[in-house]
Amino acid sequence: MSQTSTMAGASRVAATNAVQEARGPRPKPFFTPRKIIIYSLLVVFSMYYLFPLYVMFTTSLKSMPEIRFGNIFALPVAPNFDAWVKAWTSACTGLNCQGLAPGFWNSVKITIPSTIISIFIAAVNGYALINWRFKGSEIFFAILIFGSFIPYQVFLYPMVIIARELGIFGTLQAVIIVHTIFGMPILTLLFRNYFASLPQELFKAARVDGAGFWRIFFEIMLPMSLPIFVVALILQVTGIWNDFLFGVVFAGTQNYPMTVQLNNIVNSAQGTPEYNVNMAATVLTGLVPLAVYFVSGKWFVRGVAAGAVKG
């Protein structure tokens, strides 16, 4: 007891001395309890996400006998890309044995038009909702947002009927239209909030200068909106690329996107499961969203923050 109080006293004296001698930048010790806790938590959470990726990647480079050996965390003895080649060119998705390649191109054919059309319409929506308020624009917006709270599965059956009646069920157009519609609420919200954060006076100045709806949109608003377009692009590309439900329901067998074909490879009931091929196919399917994230992640954060300032 007495010893601790002396120690406390001593440290207090030391502290006073330190304060009197204080000069220049404040010392920043690295090993403080706070930092140790923060970094351990970060490490634990990173492991949580990185370990499955590690297992997936190493397994895809192993041969089947090596996998059967059972050491899933071990590094591959003789790493090779045979499984990747097989997954891409000759793995069997149901009855077809052409690998993932056709699925990849189907996904591209679905993702690119869906992304462009949905982003364009949503940008015009958001711009009109903020700058060209019309009677009932608030109600229109409320209904649109309400749509984003209803689970997709609820819409599935009516959408199938509509697609059938339009004669487009089982085609690329059907998936593209469905993706465009379901991307609308969140994208419109995103663009609306971003345009709301731009100064209203710019819009007024352009109107005094005589510019109309499209001219202001293309010449004034769009050049200022790159960050939010990148956000929308990432959201749509990852969302549509990773979609399984709409692809399997609306696209038709010959247009199945990569995710559906991946499922068919991994869940095939015949023969022994080829884990290395399954893992390679999974990594291949995930590469596109991963690449998009790494290329534009910086913009993503910036755009989300910019849109969040005003609502």
Binding site: P199, E201, L202, K204, A205, A206, R207, V208, D209, G210, E219, I220, P223, M224
Partner: peptide, 20 residues
């Protein structure tokens, strides 16, 4: 009439210059 047809020019507090 539309603003452009009124024969007015306007100067705003935030300048409202087109940044790009």
């Amino acid at each position: 009439l539309e603003p452009k047809d009124r024969g007015i020019g306007m100067v705003f507090q935030s300048y409202a210059l087109y940044p790009q």
